[in-house]
């Protein structure tokens, strides 16, 4: 006689195989908008920074160019003034100007020789010529100048 086959109902077996379920917490919502904003701000800052730096560089370049123009203008003025001073110092021009002012050419140079010592000759008088100030326009042509 065989033992009676005891079978558990199918529903019970299925229930045993089910994992134990539990209620989990709802995941926190992702702040996508925040991230997007941060990225936009960062990108904006980067672009603004680059543009600002570029603008600053451009401004400096314009400033530098303006200074270069001023230097060039200064050099031009200096060169033309040097030429003008030299032209005004020209002996021929001075001679003409003197004649126009009524001056006449000097006669032959006269030099006198003293035949006897004058009273002041005994005294030692050191005559010193005033030191000449170097002319800024002229080059240094000797160690003395």
């Amino acid at each position: 006689m065989s033992a009676p086959v005891t079978t558990r109902p199918v529903r019970e077996r299925v229930r045993e195989r089910r994992p134990s379920l539990q209620v989990v917490a709802e995941p926190r919502p992702r702040h996508t908008l925040t991230y997007a904003l941060v990225i936009v701000v960062l990108l904006g800052a980067a672009v603004f920074g680059a543009v600002a730096l570029n603008a600053l560089a451009a401004a400096e370049a314009v400033e530098a160019r303006s200074l270069e123009r001023q230097v060039a203008e200064g050099e031009r003025t200096y060169a033309s003034l040097v030429a003008e001073v030299s032209a005004l110092e020209d002996p021929g021009r001075i001679r003409e100007a003197a004649l126009e002012l009524g001056l006449v050419p000097s006669g032959p140079a006269r030099h006198l020789e003293l035949e006897r010592s004058l009273p002041a000759d005994g005294a030692v008088v050191e005559t010193r010529l005033p030191e000449t100030t170097p002319d800024p326009v002229k080059p240094v042509l000797s160690a003395e100048r």
Partner: peptide
């Protein structure tokens, strides 16, 4: 040192 020729 007086200028005889220069450029402008």
């Amino acid at each position: 040192g007086d200028v005889l020729a220069t450029s402008v």
